[in-house]
Every structure is written in structure tokens, then in C-alpha cells.
Write a protein that binds this DNA or RNA. Structure first.
Lengths: 194, 194
DNA sequence: GTCTATAACGGGATAGAC
DNA sequence: GTCTATCCCGTTATAGAC
């Protein structure tokens, strides 16, 4: 339950009272079970990001198993990265733990590293293999752009008042992300002229 | 001054006392000059986003003036969109008002529309003209991805611990953004098969 | 284990002196 | 106009009854 409030109001803007009211319990119960608000948010993040990341890695394992020795294509890797969170968000409004990325950076950087680090490293390694024309650092740089896009999509701010964006199925949403960002990943390396 | 605190801690996480302490004045002064914390944040946003958006539009005007009847290229439009905020952020850590996009969506949507709406519409129109193979709604959809990338870049979260991303000059940063995202914008239209 | 009651604190806002 | 002092509220956290 709490993750919805964190999505809508942010962590700092969500009081324990709001969480407990929605859960039908008392404020003291939170402290009994979690110890503090920070421990609660940590538990919520681990609880929700865990399955999403596990599903991502399961899909990555699958496409790596059926790919040849050159490894899976960029499109397949990006789809494995996007599908679980986008599907979850489209269906139920739940987003795993995307609200984390709207919190102050310094505060939650260790938690992000802890909960996302291994998954992200696996995807980065796959992308490095699929993009031999780029240095690993350049792949990491572009993967960060992909992450930024996903955060924005999951933030629910992807609206345009005067010019509505097309209604899409889950597969359609994912295909837009995968096809456009694969093109971005494949763009030639940038050489600094300065 | 307040914008730095908003960047670092978020609006909800920044107390008026923290703002006034850094400014060397008293809490009452804020209420005298602005009326409330909300009015202060609004003033900060308008104060900082205004010049950035004006510079963006100035650059857009320039490239439209020197372009042929087919209008400027996607790369030129994206550079006009990115240069002012990225330059400001790289040089001084100031970001215009990017902290707005990490606040709860519902709360600040009207302000975002007010301060960004006209600028964004002008850029969207230019992109629609430069991408005749896409419906206007599809261009808006992809422009949202560009916006998500910019927000992420300005958030300062674009780090990668085990795999450092390349050090770049301002021009280098912008070129990466422009070249990769131009490729994303140019990718063929997605037709839903479902 | 879950509640009520309350402590201890920090927040935004305001009154009134100067 | 800018300060000090204060109000009043909501917050996290805890103590203790049950």
C-alpha cells in the first residue's frame, strides 16, 4: 500500500499516519514491525524492486541462453529490461520502486546501488557485448539515458496537454521504448573534437 | 540560493529555516516578501526557468531563421533544447528549475505547464516539421522521452560506480545527447500489430 | 502484538516591537 | 522592512495498558 503513497506524494511528503490509515492499523505498529520510517521505506523498496529485478534477470537469462555466441541483440536486451516494470505500471499503477528515483539523490544512492546494482551490471555487460563499436564507458553513459527514460515513463508525467500522445497497449509502449532507444544505443561513437 | 537546497533535498525536504539560514535572513522575511512557502517555490521556479527557456527559444529562433523552407534538422532542434540547461548545470550545478520534476506530479503539474508549456510547444512544432514520417502524437511521445533523459541528466544521478562514464566537455555531453536522441527520434514509426 | 496516550521535536505561519 | 517571540499544528517515536 505504502508504495502508492510514495509514488503520489514522495517519501518526505508521506506521513506514517497516512500509511497506517490506508492500511487500517496504528502508527505504533509500524515502529514495532519496522523500527522507523526509514526502515519501512527500505523494506517497501526491497519488497517491490526484488521481484521486478528478478523477472528482468530471468528474461535476460532466457535471451542469453537462446542467443548465439555473439550474444543477444540490443533490442532483446532492452525489452528484457523494460517489460516487467512497464507491464506492472500499465496494468496496476504499481511501479516496483520507481519512486526512489525522485527522492534526493544523496539520501538514497546507497539503497539504489544495493537493490539495483547487480541487475544493472548484468544488463550493462550484455549491452557492452552487443555494442562492440562503443567503449564500455560509452555504453554505460547511454544506458544511463535509457534509465532516465524509464524513470520518466514510470513517473506518470508523460502527458502532453495540447498534443495527446497515442494510446498504446503494453506491447506497443514497450516497442516504442525498445525501438527508439535501440537506435540511440546504436548511434556512432561520439569523438570529442575539443 | 534556495534552488540548490531544492535540488539537494527536494522541496518537501527543505525547510524555510534552512533557506533563510543560508540566506542570512529570518524566517519572517520570507513570509513578508513571498507570503508562503508555496509562493516562494513558485517565485524560485519562475526566476530560474525563465532565462533558461528564453535562451532555448532564442536558439530555436536562430536556427529556424537560417534554415530553408523545410525547417531545421532534428539535431539542431535538440541542441537548442539541451544547450542552455546542460551548460548551466555543468558549469555551476545550477539547473534552472529541474528540481520541479522530482516533486509529486499532481502537485506541480499546473506550474510545469505554466512555465514550460509555451517553450515545449514551440519545440514540439519544430520537431513535428522535421519528422514528417511520424504523426504529431508520435513526435510528442518521443519528445517526452527526450525530456525524461534531460531530467535524469540534470538530476546528477548519472553515475556508474563499477563502470565510470567518460569525462566530457560541455560540448561533448551535448553531442552525446543530441546524436543519440536524434537517432531515437528518427527511428521508424511503430505500428501496433495487436 | 496491537492499541491509547503522550512525549519530544520541527514545521509553517503570525503578531508585534523596533 | 526586518527582527524576536510565539502560536499551533503535524510529525516521528516511545511508554505502557491490555
Amino acid at each position: 500500500m505504502a508504495e502508492r503513497l510514495f509514488d503520489e506524494r514522495g517519501i518526505a511528503g508521506t506521513s506514517l499516519r497516512a500509511v497506517t490509515a490506508k492500511a487500517g492499523v496504528n502508527v505504533a505498529a509500524v515502529h514495532y514491525h519496522f523500527g522507523s520510517k526509514e526502515d519501512l521505506t527500505r523494506a517497501v523498496v526491497l519488497r517491490h524492486a526484488g521481484p521486478v529485478n528478478a523477472e528482468r534477470l530471468r528474461r535476460l537469462d532466457a535471451i542469453e541462453a537462446e542467443a548465439g555466441p555473439e550474444g543477444p541483440r540490443v533490442e532483446s536486451i532492452l525489452e528484457a529490461f523494460f517489460r516487467a516494470p512497464v507491464q506492472l505500471w500499465t496494468e496496476g499503477g504499481a511501479t516496483g520502486a520507481s519512486f526512489l528515483f525522485h527522492e534526493p539523490a544523496e539520501r538514497i544512492q546507497p539503497l539504489v546501488e544495493e537493490v539495483m546494482g547487480e541487475m544493472a551490471s548484468r544488463f550493462l555487460a550484455a549491452l557492452v557485448r552487443a555494442l562492440p563499436h562503443l567503449e564500455p564507458g560509452e555504453v554505460a553513459e547511454r544506458f544511463q539515458l535509457v534509465i532516465g527514460v524509464l524513470i520518466h515513463v514510470l513517473s506518470g508525467r508523460m502527458r502532453w496537454e495540447p498534443q495527446p500522445i497515442p494510446a498504446r497497449s503494453v506491447d506497443g509502449r514497450i516497442r516504442v521504448l525498445v525501438d527508439t532507444l535501440a537506435a540511440a544505443m546504436r548511434a556512432p561513437a561520439i569523438e570529442e573534437s575539443s
